[in-house]
Structures are given as structure tokens and as C-alpha cells.
Amino acid sequence: MRLVPTLMPIMFYVTLALYGAASAIVLLRLLRRSRALTVAGRAVFGAGLLAQTLATGALCLHGLHPLRDVAGALHLTTWLLVAAYLATALAWRIDVLGLLVGPLALVLLLSSRLAPRAPPRPLGPHWLALLGKVHLTLVAGGVAAFALAGAVAAAYLLQDRALRRNRPGALYRRTPPLATLDRLGRRLLAIGFPVFTMALVSGVLWVVQLRAPHGLRLEHLVAGGVWLVFAVLLVARWTTGLSARRAALLTVIGFAATVLVLLIYVGRRMVAG
């Protein structure tokens, strides 16, 4: 137990190094076709995920809840993102998404290091603290799903552009067909949107119950905007037969807005110290 405080930073840097190495392998895989590199990329991402799981486990053993602050929420988002990526890469053979997922995981982890750690203080009754944790978990799940959907949409747009311009780039033969990317993107949004909706509802309830003095903030408005973008996208796909290309474009915009929400949220807390 005494070792836990020493081990935690070590595990953090090990995780960081493994995600960095995995990103480099995926990049290398882009340049050279090799089954060994594909397997190595997945294995190193898996090792990173395991290291992160152990770090979270060590935190719990130390008596700290992993979702006690912003850093914890960012950690969980990273974990969910990498886990979802690995599942997708294995099931859909789309390892190329690691090009975006790897660096994003690194940025999220580094942000979690920079984000201020809230001192353990009571936030009202127990159920309210629990609601806060549920909200953070749902946000992490929604953001992870949107991030992966954003990566898939970006791959779709690049492939579509390569086809239209008749200029195959490095991704051309590493990416599944457009129809497969479109189907995968739709599935990820079908998972991410309800989770994000629940995150918004739980967030509103939490803020109302906390009787926060600041009222609505910019990140709340942008988060509402993100929800609206994805809602419009899903409805348009079901009803008017929105083209796959436009859907991919909206997904990328929605994901960019999600990143903006995170930036404002983390930035405000960093400025506030």
C-alpha cells in the first residue's frame, strides 16, 4: 500500500510512453505494409491500456475515487477511447484510426496531468456526489464515442477526397471501403448520442441541485451545440437521406466542438487553479 503513491506516477509515464510508441508504430505501419507491425501496434496499445488500468486500480487501493476531479474524468475518457479503438480495430480491421486515437490519448493524458486536482471536499449529500460521478462517466463515454466517430469520419473524408481527385494517398490502401466507414460511423454515433444526451441531462440536474452561483457557462452552451449537431445529423440521416459525405463532415464538426467543450472546461479550471 505504501508503494502506491510511488507507483502511480511511474505507471502514468509508462502509459504515456506506451501510447506514444503505439502511435509511432501505427504511423510506421502507414509507410510499410507488415502484419507484424499491425500486431505490434495493437499489442502496445493494449499494454498501455493495461498500464492505465493498473494505475487506476492503484488509485482505488489508495482510497481515492478515480472520478474525484477533472483529471480523473480525462483519465477515464482516455481509457474508454483506447478500449473502444482496440475493440474497433479488432472487429473492423481499421487500425489506421490509431493515427488520431494515439495522439489524442496522449493529449488527454497530458491534460489530466496539467489539470488541477480538486481537494476532496464534500459536494453535498451522497446522492449528489454520485450524480456527479455518473455525469462524468457519461461524458467520458460520449466523448470517447464521438472521438472515434470523428476519426472514422476524417478517414471517410480523406478517402472520398482521394477518390474524387484520383490521387490515392498513404491512407488509400490502409482504409476500409467508404461504405464500411459510413456504417461504422453510424454505429458509433448511435452509441455515443444517447450516452451524451444522458450526460447532458445528468449534468443539468447536477448543476441545478448544486445551486451553482455561476448559472449557464460557455462550455454548457457549446455542449448543447454539440448535442444539436449530432441530433440534426441523426435525424437528417433517418429522414432526408443525408449523404454519407455530409454526415462525415458534420461528425467532424461535432467532434471538433466536443474538443472545444473540453478545452474550455479544463482551461477554466486551470486558470482558476
Binding site: 488509400y172 490502401r173 476500409p176 471501403p177 467508404l178
Partner: peptide
């Protein structure tokens, strides 16, 4: 990747179909 690049007009057309349809 020597065999992954189609080497005739007709196989290029088939390859294009494989890039679009699942």
C-alpha cells in the same frame, strides 16, 4: 505491396469498386 496495385484498366475499375463498396 507489389500485388496490391492493379495493373490493368479493368482491374483498376474493380479496385475502385472495392474502395467504395463493402
Amino acid at each position: 505491396e507489389i500485388a496490391r496495385h492493379p495493373a490493368s484498366i479493368s482491374s483498376v475499375a474493380v479496385d475502385l469498386a472495392g474502395r467504395i463498396f463493402a
